[in-house]
Nucleic acid binder design. Structure first.
Lengths: 208, 208
DNA sequence: GGCCCCATCAGCCGATCGGTTGATGCGGGG
DNA sequence: CCCCGCATCAACCGATCGGCTGATGGGGCC
Protein backbone atom coordinates (compact mmCIF):
# COMPACT_ATOMS: atom_id res chain seq x y z
CA UNK A 1 0.00 0.00 0.00
CA UNK A 2 1.11 3.59 -0.52
CA UNK A 3 1.24 5.91 2.44
CA UNK A 4 -1.20 8.87 2.38
CA UNK A 5 0.06 12.20 1.09
CA UNK A 6 1.90 14.57 3.41
CA UNK A 7 -0.52 17.33 4.40
CA UNK A 8 0.98 20.85 4.28
CA UNK A 9 -0.03 24.26 5.58
CA UNK A 10 1.71 27.25 3.97
CA UNK A 11 2.42 30.47 5.82
CA UNK A 12 3.96 33.43 4.01
CA UNK A 13 2.80 37.02 3.77
CA UNK A 14 3.64 37.23 0.05
CA UNK A 15 0.97 35.90 -2.29
CA UNK A 16 3.65 35.34 -4.91
CA UNK A 17 5.56 32.98 -2.66
CA UNK A 18 2.43 31.10 -1.64
CA UNK A 19 1.54 30.67 -5.30
CA UNK A 20 5.06 29.46 -6.02
CA UNK A 21 5.01 26.87 -3.28
CA UNK A 22 1.54 25.76 -4.32
CA UNK A 23 2.73 25.33 -7.90
CA UNK A 24 5.93 23.54 -6.99
CA UNK A 25 4.32 21.24 -4.46
CA UNK A 26 1.45 20.51 -6.84
CA UNK A 27 3.85 18.56 -9.01
CA UNK A 28 4.59 16.16 -6.16
CA UNK A 29 1.87 13.50 -5.84
CA UNK A 30 2.76 12.61 -2.27
CA UNK A 31 2.49 16.18 -1.01
CA UNK A 32 -0.83 17.93 -0.54
CA UNK A 33 -1.30 21.56 0.43
CA UNK A 34 -4.32 21.68 2.72
CA UNK A 35 -4.23 25.35 3.65
CA UNK A 36 -2.61 28.75 3.19
CA UNK A 37 -2.03 31.54 5.69
CA UNK A 38 -0.89 35.10 5.03
CA UNK A 39 -0.20 35.94 8.66
CA UNK A 40 1.06 34.34 11.83
CA UNK A 41 -2.29 34.48 13.56
CA UNK A 42 -3.99 32.83 10.62
CA UNK A 43 -1.36 30.11 10.56
CA UNK A 44 -1.80 29.33 14.25
CA UNK A 45 -5.57 29.09 13.83
CA UNK A 46 -5.41 26.99 10.69
CA UNK A 47 -2.79 24.68 12.14
CA UNK A 48 -5.06 23.98 15.10
CA UNK A 49 -8.04 23.32 12.86
CA UNK A 50 -6.36 21.36 10.07
CA UNK A 51 -3.63 19.59 12.06
CA UNK A 52 -1.34 19.35 9.02
CA UNK A 53 1.71 17.10 9.01
CA UNK A 54 4.01 20.04 8.33
CA UNK A 55 3.70 23.83 8.43
CA UNK A 56 5.97 25.70 6.01
CA UNK A 57 6.71 28.91 7.86
CA UNK A 58 8.36 32.14 6.76
CA UNK A 59 10.02 34.12 9.58
CA UNK A 60 9.25 37.61 8.23
CA UNK A 61 5.51 38.11 8.20
CA UNK A 62 4.94 41.85 8.16
CA UNK A 63 1.98 42.73 10.38
CA UNK A 64 1.08 40.84 13.55
CA UNK A 65 3.11 38.16 15.30
CA UNK A 66 6.32 37.12 13.61
CA UNK A 67 7.28 33.71 12.31
CA UNK A 68 9.20 32.80 15.43
CA UNK A 69 6.22 33.37 17.68
CA UNK A 70 3.91 31.53 15.27
CA UNK A 71 6.40 28.67 15.19
CA UNK A 72 6.48 28.56 18.97
CA UNK A 73 2.71 28.34 19.28
CA UNK A 74 2.27 25.78 16.52
CA UNK A 75 5.17 23.61 17.62
CA UNK A 76 3.70 23.61 21.13
CA UNK A 77 0.65 21.77 19.74
CA UNK A 78 2.87 19.01 18.40
CA UNK A 79 2.70 20.01 14.74
CA UNK A 80 5.99 20.00 12.87
CA UNK A 81 7.14 23.38 11.63
CA UNK A 82 9.63 23.66 8.78
CA UNK A 83 11.02 27.18 8.56
CA UNK A 84 11.48 28.43 4.99
CA UNK A 85 13.03 31.85 4.95
CA UNK A 86 15.44 34.18 3.21
CA UNK A 87 18.10 34.83 5.82
CA UNK A 88 20.61 32.55 7.44
CA UNK A 89 21.91 34.69 10.29
CA UNK A 90 22.84 33.06 13.57
CA UNK A 91 20.20 35.01 15.44
CA UNK A 92 17.36 33.92 13.16
CA UNK A 93 18.45 30.31 13.14
CA UNK A 94 18.85 30.21 16.89
CA UNK A 95 15.48 31.79 17.57
CA UNK A 96 13.71 29.44 15.17
CA UNK A 97 15.31 26.35 16.65
CA UNK A 98 14.62 27.32 20.24
CA UNK A 99 11.03 28.04 19.20
CA UNK A 100 10.75 24.40 18.24
CA UNK A 101 11.24 24.37 14.48
CA UNK A 102 11.82 20.92 13.01
CA UNK A 103 14.00 22.24 10.18
CA UNK A 104 15.39 25.42 8.63
CA UNK A 105 15.50 25.88 4.85
CA UNK A 106 16.52 28.85 2.75
CA UNK A 107 14.30 30.11 -0.04
CA UNK A 108 17.32 30.06 -2.32
CA UNK A 109 17.33 26.26 -1.98
CA UNK A 110 16.60 24.09 -4.98
CA UNK A 111 13.01 22.79 -5.12
CA UNK A 112 14.16 19.16 -4.84
CA UNK A 113 15.75 19.97 -1.50
CA UNK A 114 12.51 21.51 -0.38
CA UNK A 115 10.54 18.39 -1.26
CA UNK A 116 13.01 16.19 0.57
CA UNK A 117 12.95 18.42 3.61
CA UNK A 118 9.17 18.34 3.72
CA UNK A 119 9.09 14.55 3.63
CA UNK A 120 11.68 14.46 6.39
CA UNK A 121 9.85 16.97 8.51
CA UNK A 122 6.62 15.01 8.20
CA UNK A 123 8.35 12.22 10.07
CA UNK A 124 9.84 14.57 12.61
CA UNK A 125 13.31 14.36 11.11
CA UNK A 126 15.35 17.53 10.93
CA UNK A 127 16.67 19.04 7.69
CA UNK A 128 18.90 22.09 7.49
CA UNK A 129 20.03 23.95 4.39
CA UNK A 130 23.77 23.49 3.90
CA UNK A 131 24.67 27.08 4.85
CA UNK A 132 22.48 26.77 7.92
CA UNK A 133 24.03 23.46 8.89
CA UNK A 134 27.46 25.02 8.56
CA UNK A 135 26.57 27.83 10.87
CA UNK A 136 25.10 25.49 13.44
CA UNK A 137 28.23 23.36 13.39
CA UNK A 138 30.49 26.39 13.65
CA UNK A 139 28.47 27.65 16.55
CA UNK A 140 28.85 24.30 18.33
CA UNK A 141 32.60 24.27 17.79
CA UNK A 142 33.19 27.79 18.99
CA UNK A 143 30.16 28.80 21.08
CA UNK A 144 29.56 32.24 19.62
CA UNK A 145 29.01 34.86 22.25
CA UNK A 146 25.34 35.06 23.11
CA UNK A 147 24.10 38.39 24.39
CA UNK A 148 22.19 38.41 27.64
CA UNK A 149 18.74 40.01 27.77
CA UNK A 150 20.13 43.07 29.45
CA UNK A 151 22.88 43.42 26.92
CA UNK A 152 20.29 43.31 24.18
CA UNK A 153 18.43 46.11 25.95
CA UNK A 154 21.55 48.22 25.99
CA UNK A 155 22.31 47.42 22.38
CA UNK A 156 18.81 48.41 21.43
CA UNK A 157 19.17 51.83 23.01
CA UNK A 158 22.60 52.20 21.48
CA UNK A 159 21.07 51.52 18.06
CA UNK A 160 18.86 54.54 18.60
CA UNK A 161 22.03 56.54 18.74
CA UNK A 162 21.72 57.36 22.44
CA UNK A 163 24.70 58.29 24.61
CA UNK A 164 25.56 56.46 27.80
CA UNK A 165 23.73 58.95 29.98
CA UNK A 166 20.51 58.62 28.00
CA UNK A 167 20.76 54.84 27.92
CA UNK A 168 21.21 54.86 31.69
CA UNK A 169 18.13 57.01 32.15
CA UNK A 170 16.05 54.95 29.73
CA UNK A 171 16.86 51.73 31.55
CA UNK A 172 16.91 53.15 35.09
CA UNK A 173 20.49 52.21 35.80
CA UNK A 174 23.69 54.14 36.35
CA UNK A 175 26.03 55.27 33.64
CA UNK A 176 28.72 53.03 35.10
CA UNK A 177 26.52 50.01 34.53
CA UNK A 178 25.89 51.02 30.97
CA UNK A 179 29.62 51.22 30.37
CA UNK A 180 30.17 47.82 31.91
CA UNK A 181 27.54 46.24 29.67
CA UNK A 182 28.89 48.01 26.61
CA UNK A 183 32.37 46.69 27.29
CA UNK A 184 31.05 43.13 27.36
CA UNK A 185 28.97 43.73 24.24
CA UNK A 186 32.07 44.91 22.39
CA UNK A 187 33.91 41.78 23.47
CA UNK A 188 31.14 39.45 22.38
CA UNK A 189 30.59 41.14 19.05
CA UNK A 190 34.28 41.50 18.32
CA UNK A 191 34.23 45.28 17.95
CA UNK A 192 35.61 48.18 19.94
CA UNK A 193 33.33 51.10 19.12
CA UNK A 194 29.63 51.78 19.42
CA UNK A 195 29.35 52.28 15.69
CA UNK A 196 30.82 48.86 15.10
CA UNK A 197 28.43 47.32 17.59
CA UNK A 198 25.42 48.84 15.84
CA UNK A 199 26.71 47.65 12.49
CA UNK A 200 27.05 44.07 13.72
CA UNK A 201 23.69 44.23 15.45
CA UNK A 202 21.92 45.28 12.26
CA UNK A 203 23.92 42.93 10.06
CA UNK A 204 23.24 39.93 12.27
CA UNK A 205 19.66 40.94 12.89
CA UNK A 206 20.24 40.78 16.64
CA UNK A 207 17.45 43.28 17.30
CA UNK A 208 13.74 43.25 16.41
CA UNK B 1 -8.87 41.67 -33.26
CA UNK B 2 -7.22 40.98 -29.88
CA UNK B 3 -3.76 42.36 -29.23
CA UNK B 4 -1.00 39.77 -28.84
CA UNK B 5 -0.07 38.66 -25.34
CA UNK B 6 2.40 40.69 -23.28
CA UNK B 7 5.73 38.86 -23.35
CA UNK B 8 7.45 38.65 -19.94
CA UNK B 9 10.93 37.77 -18.73
CA UNK B 10 11.25 36.87 -15.04
CA UNK B 11 14.36 37.57 -12.99
CA UNK B 12 14.59 36.39 -9.39
CA UNK B 13 17.21 34.32 -7.65
CA UNK B 14 14.61 32.28 -5.74
CA UNK B 15 13.12 29.37 -7.64
CA UNK B 16 10.06 29.54 -5.40
CA UNK B 17 9.32 33.09 -6.47
CA UNK B 18 9.85 32.32 -10.14
CA UNK B 19 7.45 29.38 -9.81
CA UNK B 20 4.95 31.61 -8.08
CA UNK B 21 5.05 34.26 -10.76
CA UNK B 22 4.86 31.61 -13.45
CA UNK B 23 1.79 30.11 -11.79
CA UNK B 24 0.07 33.44 -11.17
CA UNK B 25 0.79 34.83 -14.63
CA UNK B 26 -0.26 31.55 -16.23
CA UNK B 27 -3.83 32.30 -15.27
CA UNK B 28 -3.81 35.51 -17.32
CA UNK B 29 -4.42 34.76 -21.01
CA UNK B 30 -2.95 38.05 -22.19
CA UNK B 31 0.34 37.56 -20.37
CA UNK B 32 2.98 35.12 -21.54
CA UNK B 33 6.21 34.30 -19.72
CA UNK B 34 8.85 33.80 -22.38
CA UNK B 35 11.86 33.32 -20.15
CA UNK B 36 13.25 32.99 -16.61
CA UNK B 37 16.54 34.18 -15.18
CA UNK B 38 18.06 33.35 -11.81
CA UNK B 39 20.79 35.98 -11.95
CA UNK B 40 21.36 39.47 -13.24
CA UNK B 41 23.80 38.37 -15.92
CA UNK B 42 21.35 35.78 -17.19
CA UNK B 43 18.57 38.37 -17.27
CA UNK B 44 20.65 40.83 -19.30
CA UNK B 45 21.55 38.11 -21.81
CA UNK B 46 18.02 36.76 -22.10
CA UNK B 47 16.51 40.23 -22.40
CA UNK B 48 18.80 40.95 -25.33
CA UNK B 49 17.94 37.67 -27.03
CA UNK B 50 14.20 37.53 -26.33
CA UNK B 51 13.38 41.25 -26.37
CA UNK B 52 10.41 40.79 -24.03
CA UNK B 53 7.84 43.53 -23.54
CA UNK B 54 8.53 43.65 -19.81
CA UNK B 55 11.22 42.30 -17.50
CA UNK B 56 10.07 41.57 -13.93
CA UNK B 57 13.16 42.28 -11.87
CA UNK B 58 14.01 41.59 -8.24
CA UNK B 59 16.59 43.94 -6.73
CA UNK B 60 18.28 41.43 -4.43
CA UNK B 61 19.90 38.75 -6.56
CA UNK B 62 22.54 37.15 -4.39
CA UNK B 63 25.64 36.40 -6.48
CA UNK B 64 26.81 38.55 -9.39
CA UNK B 65 25.46 41.94 -10.45
CA UNK B 66 22.54 43.24 -8.46
CA UNK B 67 19.08 44.10 -9.72
CA UNK B 68 19.86 47.80 -10.07
CA UNK B 69 22.78 47.15 -12.40
CA UNK B 70 20.78 44.58 -14.38
CA UNK B 71 17.93 47.09 -14.64
CA UNK B 72 20.32 49.74 -15.89
CA UNK B 73 21.71 47.52 -18.64
CA UNK B 74 18.36 46.18 -19.76
CA UNK B 75 16.61 49.54 -19.66
CA UNK B 76 19.45 50.94 -21.78
CA UNK B 77 18.39 48.57 -24.57
CA UNK B 78 14.90 50.04 -24.55
CA UNK B 79 13.20 47.12 -22.80
CA UNK B 80 10.78 48.04 -20.02
CA UNK B 81 11.83 46.89 -16.56
CA UNK B 82 9.26 46.52 -13.80
CA UNK B 83 10.96 46.16 -10.43
CA UNK B 84 9.28 43.65 -8.12
CA UNK B 85 10.97 43.55 -4.77
CA UNK B 86 10.52 43.22 -1.02
CA UNK B 87 11.73 46.54 0.32
CA UNK B 88 10.43 50.06 -0.09
CA UNK B 89 13.27 52.14 1.30
CA UNK B 90 14.04 55.50 -0.26
CA UNK B 91 17.49 54.39 -1.30
CA UNK B 92 16.25 51.30 -3.17
CA UNK B 93 13.46 53.20 -4.88
CA UNK B 94 15.73 56.03 -5.92
CA UNK B 95 18.40 53.73 -7.29
CA UNK B 96 15.87 51.69 -9.27
CA UNK B 97 14.24 54.75 -10.80
CA UNK B 98 17.50 56.41 -11.77
CA UNK B 99 18.56 53.07 -13.31
CA UNK B 100 15.61 53.42 -15.64
CA UNK B 101 12.92 51.21 -14.11
CA UNK B 102 9.45 51.72 -15.58
CA UNK B 103 7.70 50.84 -12.32
CA UNK B 104 8.31 49.67 -8.76
CA UNK B 105 6.09 47.05 -7.13
CA UNK B 106 6.30 45.33 -3.76
CA UNK B 107 6.08 41.58 -3.48
CA UNK B 108 3.48 42.05 -0.77
CA UNK B 109 1.18 43.53 -3.43
CA UNK B 110 -2.00 41.71 -4.40
CA UNK B 111 -1.68 39.64 -7.61
CA UNK B 112 -4.30 41.77 -9.40
CA UNK B 113 -2.12 44.83 -8.89
CA UNK B 114 0.78 42.93 -10.35
CA UNK B 115 -1.19 42.03 -13.48
CA UNK B 116 -2.32 45.61 -13.94
CA UNK B 117 1.20 46.90 -13.46
CA UNK B 118 2.56 44.50 -16.04
CA UNK B 119 0.02 45.60 -18.63
CA UNK B 120 0.86 49.22 -17.88
CA UNK B 121 4.59 48.62 -18.07
CA UNK B 122 4.20 46.89 -21.44
CA UNK B 123 2.98 50.21 -22.78
CA UNK B 124 5.68 52.15 -21.05
CA UNK B 125 3.34 53.51 -18.42
CA UNK B 126 4.59 53.73 -14.86
CA UNK B 127 3.01 51.95 -11.91
CA UNK B 128 4.12 52.31 -8.32
CA UNK B 129 2.91 50.39 -5.28
CA UNK B 130 0.97 52.69 -2.95
CA UNK B 131 3.67 52.77 -0.24
CA UNK B 132 6.25 53.49 -2.90
CA UNK B 133 4.16 56.24 -4.44
CA UNK B 134 3.77 57.80 -1.01
CA UNK B 135 7.48 57.86 -0.47
CA UNK B 136 8.14 59.37 -3.86
CA UNK B 137 5.61 62.11 -3.21
CA UNK B 138 7.00 62.81 0.24
CA UNK B 139 10.46 63.01 -1.19
CA UNK B 140 9.30 65.55 -3.77
CA UNK B 141 7.62 67.66 -1.12
CA UNK B 142 10.54 67.73 1.26
CA UNK B 143 13.66 66.82 -0.69
CA UNK B 144 15.18 64.34 1.73
CA UNK B 145 18.87 64.91 2.29
CA UNK B 146 20.85 63.01 -0.32
CA UNK B 147 24.33 61.95 0.66
CA UNK B 148 27.18 62.86 -1.67
CA UNK B 149 29.50 60.13 -2.94
CA UNK B 150 32.18 61.17 -0.51
CA UNK B 151 29.79 61.18 2.39
CA UNK B 152 28.78 57.65 1.48
CA UNK B 153 32.45 56.69 1.53
CA UNK B 154 32.81 58.09 5.01
CA UNK B 155 29.61 56.42 6.17
CA UNK B 156 30.85 53.13 4.79
CA UNK B 157 34.03 53.31 6.82
CA UNK B 158 32.07 54.42 9.86
CA UNK B 159 29.89 51.35 9.51
CA UNK B 160 33.00 49.24 9.87
CA UNK B 161 33.35 50.76 13.30
CA UNK B 162 36.46 52.75 12.41
CA UNK B 163 37.52 55.86 14.33
CA UNK B 164 38.11 59.19 12.64
CA UNK B 165 41.83 58.63 12.37
CA UNK B 166 41.40 55.27 10.65
CA UNK B 167 38.78 56.64 8.31
CA UNK B 168 41.11 59.47 7.40
CA UNK B 169 43.92 57.03 6.63
CA UNK B 170 41.65 54.72 4.67
CA UNK B 171 40.44 57.54 2.44
CA UNK B 172 43.74 59.47 2.26
CA UNK B 173 42.35 62.65 3.79
CA UNK B 174 42.91 64.49 7.05
CA UNK B 175 41.06 63.83 10.26
CA UNK B 176 39.63 67.33 10.07
CA UNK B 177 37.98 66.51 6.76
CA UNK B 178 36.49 63.35 8.17
CA UNK B 179 34.96 65.35 10.99
CA UNK B 180 33.55 67.89 8.57
CA UNK B 181 31.90 65.18 6.50
CA UNK B 182 30.59 63.42 9.58
CA UNK B 183 28.97 66.62 10.78
CA UNK B 184 27.11 66.99 7.50
CA UNK B 185 26.14 63.32 7.54
CA UNK B 186 24.65 63.75 11.01
CA UNK B 187 22.64 66.72 9.78
CA UNK B 188 21.33 64.94 6.73
CA UNK B 189 20.40 61.76 8.58
CA UNK B 190 18.91 63.62 11.51
CA UNK B 191 21.19 62.08 14.13
CA UNK B 192 23.98 63.34 16.34
CA UNK B 193 26.13 60.33 17.04
CA UNK B 194 28.06 57.85 14.94
CA UNK B 195 26.00 55.00 16.33
CA UNK B 196 22.82 56.71 15.19
CA UNK B 197 24.28 57.30 11.75
CA UNK B 198 25.15 53.64 11.35
CA UNK B 199 21.69 52.65 12.51
CA UNK B 200 20.00 54.87 9.92
CA UNK B 201 22.40 53.75 7.23
CA UNK B 202 21.58 50.10 7.80
CA UNK B 203 17.89 50.74 8.28
CA UNK B 204 17.58 52.75 5.09
CA UNK B 205 19.90 50.44 3.17
CA UNK B 206 22.09 53.38 2.24
CA UNK B 207 25.13 51.16 1.85
CA UNK B 208 25.78 48.09 -0.36
C1' DG C 1 27.59 26.05 51.40
C1' DG C 2 30.44 27.11 47.57
C1' DC C 3 30.49 28.41 42.65
C1' DC C 4 29.43 30.91 38.70
C1' DC C 5 26.69 33.98 35.86
C1' DC C 6 24.39 38.13 35.69
C1' DA C 7 23.42 42.77 36.88
C1' DT C 8 24.62 46.52 39.39
C1' DC C 9 27.82 50.43 40.74
C1' DA C 10 32.43 53.50 41.56
C1' DG C 11 36.50 56.10 40.23
C1' DC C 12 40.22 57.13 37.24
C1' DC C 13 42.49 58.59 32.90
C1' DG C 14 43.85 59.14 28.29
C1' DA C 15 41.80 59.08 23.82
C1' DT C 16 38.19 60.23 20.99
C1' DC C 17 34.30 62.65 19.57
C1' DG C 18 31.03 66.57 18.34
C1' DG C 19 30.42 71.46 17.59
C1' DT C 20 32.10 75.72 16.03
C1' DT C 21 34.32 79.06 13.15
C1' DG C 22 36.78 79.96 9.37
C1' DA C 23 39.39 79.18 5.13
C1' DT C 24 41.01 77.31 0.36
C1' DG C 25 40.37 75.35 -4.24
C1' DC C 26 37.84 73.29 -7.92
C1' DG C 27 34.13 72.69 -11.01
C1' DG C 28 29.62 73.62 -13.19
C1' DG C 29 25.60 76.82 -14.40
C1' DG C 30 23.74 81.06 -15.36
C1' DC D 1 32.60 86.24 -14.47
C1' DC D 2 30.38 85.16 -10.30
C1' DC D 3 27.98 81.97 -7.43
C1' DC D 4 27.34 77.71 -5.33
C1' DG D 5 28.01 72.92 -4.17
C1' DC D 6 31.57 69.86 -3.00
C1' DA D 7 35.80 68.44 -0.94
C1' DT D 8 39.55 69.70 1.60
C1' DC D 9 41.97 71.39 5.90
C1' DA D 10 43.00 73.97 10.75
C1' DA D 11 42.58 75.04 15.62
C1' DC D 12 40.02 74.96 19.70
C1' DC D 13 37.24 73.09 23.65
C1' DG D 14 34.05 70.73 26.45
C1' DA D 15 31.72 66.40 26.53
C1' DT D 16 31.84 61.72 25.84
C1' DC D 17 33.80 57.37 25.35
C1' DG D 18 36.69 53.06 26.20
C1' DG D 19 39.61 50.47 29.26
C1' DC D 20 40.85 49.41 33.75
C1' DT D 21 40.45 47.62 38.52
C1' DG D 22 37.55 46.39 41.92
C1' DA D 23 33.26 45.60 44.56
C1' DT D 24 28.37 44.05 45.90
C1' DG D 25 24.30 41.14 45.67
C1' DG D 26 20.92 37.94 43.75
C1' DG D 27 19.92 33.30 41.53
C1' DG D 28 20.70 28.89 39.95
C1' DC D 29 23.24 24.46 40.31
C1' DC D 30 25.54 20.72 42.43
Amino acid sequence: MTSPAVRILLCDDHAVVRAGLLALLGSEPDIEVVGEAGSGEEAVALAARLTPDVVLMDLQLGEGIDGVEATRRIAATGVHVLVLTTYDTDADITRAIEAGATGYLLKAERPEELFAAIRSAAQGRTTLSPPVASRVMARMRRPLPTLTDRERDILGQLSQGLGNRDIARALFISEATVKTHLGRIYDKLGVDTRAGAVAVAKEQRLLP
